[in-house]
Structures are given as C-alpha cells and as structure tokens.
Design a binder for these strands. Structure first.
Length: 115
DNA sequence: AGCGTGACGCAGG
DNA sequence: ACCTGCGCCACGC
C-alpha cells in the first residue's frame, strides 16, 4: 500500500502535510489549493497532494479530513469506511454537507489570505 | 533500477 | 449539470 511514506525522511509529502496542518478548524481546503500553497504547481498538483495524504499514517495529527476536492465532496478512497469518518470529523467542526454529500465551498473554503 | 500503488483537476462532449 | 479520458509524481519493495 505504499503507506508510511518517509516517516523519518521528509520529502515532498511532508511539505503537503505541513500545509494541511495550517488549515483552521471549521474550514476546508481543496487538493488544488493545498498543492498551490505547498508550492506544487502544475496541472496534476492536486493529485500529488492526494498521493501525499494517502501516504499519511493513521493516527497522524494532520487534519487530513479538511482536504476535499473542488466539487466540495470527500474524494472516494480505496478503503471504504474512512470516507464516512471524514464527513463525521468535519461535522464535528461545524462543516456540514447537503443531502448529496456536498460541502459549500463558498462558505467553508479556507481563506488563507483573510486570516 | 524498475514496477505498482494512490485522497485529483481540467477539457471536451 | 453529468460523465469520460488524460496527465502526473513520490514512496516502498
């Protein structure tokens, strides 16, 4: 599963995790946004972020649940069950989604420039 | 040194 | 608004 990526040796994934850790509670950021803040520019930057989060270790202090896709949805993962956890964690922070499982980005998207 | 794994975003229809 | 195809990089074995 290629997890536990660079637990000690920090590479690009650590960069992503650092950015995600900066997302305020009650806010969400898109993969694309995290990629940009992490300095990963490119058409597939968001994917690189997804890879980095996928490599995150369970029990990590990184608020990975605050990262969603541009549609305002939780990206479907390989392992079923975790997806629900993400929505649950967000709900605990006051981030709700509609019946379709979509989060209002206009309302919850992290505005790093306004803080 | 090479292959498989893995949480996306955009353009086009 | 929805669906489909394509591009992409880091890490473990």
């Amino acid at each position: 599963m290629t997890t536990r990526a660079a637990a000690a040796g920090e590479g690009r994934n650590a960069r992503v995790w650092a950015v995600v850790s900066c997302i305020p509670r009650g806010r969400v950021a898109t993969y694309r946004q995290v990629a940009q803040l992490a300095g990963i520019e490119g058409p597939s930057g968001a994917r690189q972020v997804g890879y980095a989060l996928a490599a995150l270790d369970a029990g990590s202090e990184v608020p990975w649940h605050r990262v969603i896709n541009v549609r305002g949805e939780v990206s479907p993962r390989a392992r079923a069950g975790r997806e629900n956890e993400q929505y649950e964690r967000l709900a605990l922070e006051g981030v709700d989604c509609d019946a379709r499982g979509r989060i209002d980005l206009a309302r919850y998207e992290w505005d790093y420039g306004g803080a």
